[in-house]
């Protein structure tokens, strides 16, 4: 089955920056790109995995749509990867965790805390966000930087969130997710 890339970009011009590079990583793997407002549960049932892509630092539209995401994704029982805003959405709806003000722009050192299927060790990763996520009971923290939680996994399901942008560096994280 196919992969669905969900865009959280309010302006289509941002897709070329945050969604198309993820699509390029997928290459020949069959996938579709759809803005979240065009998604519904029936459409999602056609896909084996979902990647929720990031968006611009000034784009906060997704925050107003959290109840929509809650309804859309709660019953999707296959793997989901949320990148940046995507991670914030996933932890907000599955973990009921509020967002916190934490700015990171550029490369940070990421330290893996728990062995997982996406990455390991210490590595440099590119971040671009005004918000970060709180620790919460539903998710295990997989990695941190000096200031922020960098990656989480749902305790019971194959739902992952990463704060950093793998389209800039660490593309293998996306490939590893596809192999889950």
């Amino acid at each position: 089955m196919k992969i669905l890339l969900i865009s959280t970009c309010t302006h289509t011009l941002n897709n070329s920056e945050f969604v198309i590079p993820i699509s390029d990583i997928l290459g020949d793997i069959e996938h579709d790109i759809m803005h979240f407002e065009d998604c519904n549960k029936e459409i999602l049932s056609n896909y084996s995995k979902i990647i929720i892509c990031g968006t611009s630092m000034q784009d906060f539209t997704y925050v107003d749509w959290l109840p929509f995401f809650d309804d859309l994704l709660k019953e999707f029982n296959r793997p989901i990867l949320g990148i940046c805003s995507g991670m914030q959405i996933l932890t907000s709806i599955f973990g009921i965790s509020g967002l916190i003000d934490k700015i990171e722009i550029g490369f940070v050192e990421v330290n893996t805390l728990i062995s997982n299927k996406l990455f390991d060790g210490r590595f440099q990763a590119y971040n671009l966000h005004n918000y970060s996520v709180n620790d919460c009971n539903e998710f295990t923290i997989l990695a941190t930087s000096e200031n922020c939680i960098q990656a989480v996994k749902h305790m019971a399901r194959e739902i992952y969130g990463i704060s950093f942008h793998p389209e800039v560096r660490n593309q293998e994280v996306v490939k590893n997710f596809l192999n889950i």
């Binding site: 011009l13 070329s16 920056e17 198309i20 590079p21 630092m57 000034q58 784009d59 550029g106 490369f107």
Partner: peptide, 26 residues
């Protein structure tokens, strides 16, 4: 990332959107 990080910081400080339509384009 040297250029874009610095421009992103300036835009964020000024409350401006930053668009990089060619970003990561082969």
């Amino acid at each position: 990332t040297y250029q874009s990080t610095r421009i992103q910081k300036i835009c964020n400080d000024l409350g401006l959107w930053c668009f990089n339509p060619l970003w990561q384009m082969p």
